[in-house]
Amino acid sequence: MASITVSTPARGSRFKMLAQRLEVRMLALALIIGLCLSLLSPYFLTQSNIFNMLDQSVVIGIVAVGMTFVILTGGIDLSVGSVAGLTGIILGLSLQQMPIVPAIAVAVLAGGGIGLVSGLLINVFGLAAFVVTLGMMAIGRSLAYILSGQTAISNIPDAMQNIVYTNILGIPSNVLFLIVLYIVAWAYLTYTKGGRTIYAVGSNKEAARAAGLNTLFYSVLPYVLSGALSAVAVTFSISQLLSADPLMGNSMELDAIAAVVIGGASLYGGRGSMIGTLIGVFIMVMIRNGLNLMGVSPFWQGSAIGTIIIVALLVERLVSSRASR
């Protein structure tokens, strides 16, 4: 009685095994892009530009963590940019009333609360994630304008700068925060019940429910995280600029989604990883940085980034379909 009908997968060389992992292929892509850019611009690989790029990765990187969680469950969060804008204003206003730590807490709670509302609308009332977060996107931006009185809040206490400009072990605190956040998120997704449930929910929600997993809680949690992390991200922006603008985080959702997708996540859920997302973030930041260095007009940058993303995913699709054969 042949119980196993399929031949064991090729596990010949270590190289082949590595190449089967999407993250490895994407890392190779990131290196290739880095190499090309360093050939095109001598400034690209200098230490100061590398730190500059790491700095630029922080905000988008933080938002991409929440986005990864959401996309892993098969959802999408279009509201991250607007939530960042709104919570930025909330932070700016709170800082007028209270010390820094409680003010940040208020902003993060507000972001989490918005995510909770989206998550419940999507998972309890069964509305489409795309539509709910699209609505939240419009509401968030509109409230940001109303609360701010259409102008930037610029009297932010200078002490906020400590959040960004403290060096710990020679690493800027915001970059360190990003590194710790990715390690924690990776460990959570890999080793905890909640993390595995998030994968299971995205891969097959019905089966997850039938196995007794708490699908409702772990479908809502990613939206809460995503909202809260948007607020965290904007906190770093504000502490750098010492100003809260209602326009902050504009079109950030697109960069975050692009980073997650470049990192190998499936928009149908169940597939993706923090390592992949981090590589995706770096690819996005490198391209943008490189285009700036080469003096490409900002109006052309959108076209360039869009093209690179689509071509990268197209090549990946062709490669992976050949690899799985």
């Binding site: 994968y199 299971a200 891969s203 097959n204 019905e206 997850a208």
Partner: peptide
Amino acid sequence: TQNIVPDL
């Protein structure tokens, strides 16, 4: 649809 979680 009810038992297998394909990505795990």
